[in-house]
Each structure stands twice: as structure tokens, then as C-alpha cells.
Design a protein around this nucleic acid. Structure first.
Lengths: 222, 222
DNA sequence: AAATGTGAAGAAATTCACAGCA
DNA sequence: TGCTGTGAATTTCTTCACATTT
């Protein structure tokens, strides 16, 4: 409806889920000193179609130049701003088993905007030790140290996940990334995203089993 | 259309992505000795709506009983069969850094049907060592030992991911789960699914930033 | 000339609401 | 009566095709 003053608000969920992918592709271009890309080039790098990319970007406003393309730096900034990455986010990893340990030093988290600031465990034998340069604390300490808004990454065993989520919510966490192979229930207003290895493998298995069915549609990786 | 002989083939992608979730919920019911569930109960446990659940299940055939519900064991078997879990899948983890190390012993992989059978790295200093009870091998050895169909889990640093994917494909891998924070390009016929921590965090950040916008629609975790 | 931005068409997924069966 | 299975309606997402702008 309102055309001129930027079509804000109400970005489709499907678009939001792709913005981080575009951002990554843009950074890759930037690191190769490319500072102008066409929707065609960016779409290929992101594994989507150019028309879809343009439609996605149109939801944040008009940051491209017709006949020319998109300025890599400018577009990166606009997407970052839209995603709320103009300030840093603090991350707490809950559960210092194998996975939590690995996540604490995983380079994928080092992406600009997210900083792992707390490692939490309830086992007294682990609390107090240092992992990846951070001291492991317990929930009581997290409550004291983390008054601001933080994102919690659940890396506990499944039996402990619900309790950990409850405690995280009690501390004020409103966003949870759940790696535990189980569901957690949270109060309204708290968002949970789930990363489930078994689920991903099962989906792959389904497609491989079906074999050369419709796999042409998925030739390019995201 | 055809009612009796089961409505096979062509299960919607969105449904396929939810079947593993239903399977997990069913196993949870089973472990609590519940052997009959209504679509309402199962949907709540899976974090979806009952009508959607019933539509999803209708794509595999009619395994429920009107006025009664679904037999937990029966439905688990049907979904498992549909997902191709009636036989075991061999998994090779590529890249034995922090993450690969953690994945090698992650309980989420222990889900029935998937067995980590190979750990692969290209660093001679790591090849030959034993992690989680398995000897780390190189690609040459993988080519010798793995003639059958396997699923590869990429856990390399981003710089090494494309080369690792190429080598995996050369060995015959047709399904890849990519944990590296980058995209990989593969030939047609090979499927890649991506698990991207930064992406998930960015989506969470977006929603938290928007705050109390439309979060009522996401009150329950998957 | 080249490439964006976008209405309109089409496809896919979700939700509704109820017929049909135990 | 209770709950499944499913057409129909609705919403969301994708693709097309071209007018628009530099």
C-alpha cells in the first residue's frame, strides 16, 4: 500500500529465514573485494532464484540501483540492521558436555554480532573450571551476572533440557536455541528454535531412499 | 482419491520435515507406556495443530481409528518405514575439530537407525588416533572401506568444507549434512542440508528485536 | 542496455469445518 | 458420542513477466 516511505514491518517469515544467508554471501563477496553484485550473482551464491531474492530485498526497501545492482557494503548494513545486528548479542551456553564444549569454541558463533559470554552448568564438578577462556558458572550466578537480554543455547542432555529452559526463562531469557534432542515447553513470549541432528539425518534418509525421485529441484546447496 | 490402497508417493516437503518430530513424540509416549494417542495429544506434544497433524498423517495412509486415535507402536513403525529407517544408515563425520569431536559422541546421533561408522580427517597428526572408540581415517581409506551408501556430516572449518564435500561426493556420498558456516556446491543428485548456528541466532535476534510483535503465534516450541 | 522492483499468476501449505466411521 | 480423514477455503510463498529507472 504505502509505496514511498519504505515498505517496513511485516517481513514474511520465509524472507527472514533467508536474510542471514544473503548476509553470509555478501560478506563472502566483500572479503573478495567485490563491492557491487547483481541479484543474479547474489542469488547464485545464496542458492536461491534471482526473482525471489529481489522480492525478499524489496521488503526492506529499495537499496539496489536499476541497471547496476546492489552495493555490497550498503546492503550488508541494511540487512544487519533489519536483523537487529547493529548491537551485540550476548549468548549463554547451557550444558557443558561434549556439545556445549564444542559450541563454546565453535567458529560459527564468532560471526559478528554474537558473543558467547557465559557458560553454564549445574554440575558442581564442572562449575568453576575454565573452557575456551570462560569460567563455567551455575544458574544462580547467571541470574546475578546477566540482567540484560541474552540468548540461551541449550546443549544439555535431553533429560535436563526442560529444567534448564525453565531456569533460563526465570533468569529473563526470551530466545532459546535448543540443541537437545527433545522438545521444551516455554511460556508465551519466549521463542525457541530447534536444531535437531536426528531430524536432519532422517530427512536426508527419506530423500536418499526415494532415490532419483525429484532431486533435481535440490541440486544446489543453501 | 484412491482411499484403500494407501495414498503413497508425493509427500509434501513440509510434511516430510515434520515426520521426524512426530516420530520423536511417539517414542516419548511409548517410553511412558502410552499406546494410544489422539491427534490432539500428539499434535500438542509435537508443537503443531491437530488438523495439520491429521493431514500430514493422511499422506501416509489411514493408520488411525475414528473415534479412538492412533496406535503409538503402529504409527511409529509406519513413519519409520516411510522415512527409510527400516534399515540402518552409516554416517561418516568429516573433520575432527572441536565440533566433529563432539558430534562423534553426541547422543542425538544415537537415535535408532543412524550409526557413526567413520571419522575422517585430512590432518596426518589426527589420522590414526581414536575418538569415541573409532579410529580416525583419511579419505583414501574411506574410499576403500565405504563402498555402500553413506551420509556425510561436514564438520570442517569453512575453508576446507568445499574440498571435503568434493571428496565425499567422489567417494559416492549422495547426502550431506553441512555444519560448516559456509555453502558448498555439489553435483546434481546430491542433497545437502545445512545446519547453521549463526543463521539460527540471527533469526532469534530478529524476533527478539521486534519484541512483542507477533510472538503469540510461536508460543510453543517445536 | 541492463538490472531492479513489483503487480499478477501460480503453487504450496495451512486452517477450517464437517462428513463418515467406530 | 468421539475422533479421524479430507474436500474446500484461506493464507503464505514462489515464480513469472514486464514496466521502470539509471
Amino acid at each position: 500500500m504505502s509505496t514511498a516511505p519504505a515498505a517496513r514491518r511485516d517481513i514474511p517469515e520465509a524472507t527472514v529465514a533467508r536474510l542471514p544467508v544473503y548476509l553470509r554471501a555478501l560478506r563472502s563477496f566483500h572479503s573478495r573485494d567485490v563491492d557491487l553484485v547483481s541479484s543474479e550473482e547474489l542469488a547464485e551464491a545464496a542458492g536461491v532464484r534471482s526473482a525471489g531474492l529481489r522480492k525478499d530485498l524489496s521488503h526492506l526497501g529499495s537499496y539496489g540501483v536499476r541497471g547496476v545492482g546492489y552495493d555490497v557494503t550498503r546492503l550488508s548494513e541494511e540487512i544487519s540492521r533489519e536483523l537487529g545486528l547493529h548491537h551485540d548479542w550476548s549468548v549463554a551456553i547451557i550444558g557443558m558436555g561434549n556439545l556445549g564444549h564444542a559450541l563454546a569454541s565453535y567458529s560459527g558463533f564468532a560471526t559478528r554480532g554474537f558473543k558467547v559470554r557465559w557458560l553454564v552448568d549445574q554440575d558442581p564438578a564442572i562449575v568453576g573450571t575454565t573452557i575456551a577462556g570462560l569460567r563455567v558458572i551455575d544458574f544462580a550466578m547467571l541470574a546475578v551476572e546477566a540482567p540484560e537480554s541474552i540468548i540461551a543455547v541449550l546443549a544439555t542432555p535431553p533429560e535436563a533440557a526442560q529444567a534448564a529452559a525453565d531456569q533460563a526463562v526465570a533468569v529473563g531469557v526470551r530466545s532459546i536455541l535448543n540443541f537437545a534432542p527433545c522438545m521444551v515447553t516455554v511460556p508465551e513470549g519466549v521463542e525457541v528454535r530447534k536444531v535437531d541432528l536426528a531430524t536432519e539425518l532422517q530427512i536426508l534418509a527419506f530423500h536418499e531412499e526415494r532415490g532419483r525421485g525429484d532431486e533435481t529441484s535440490l541440486k544446489e546447496a543453501r
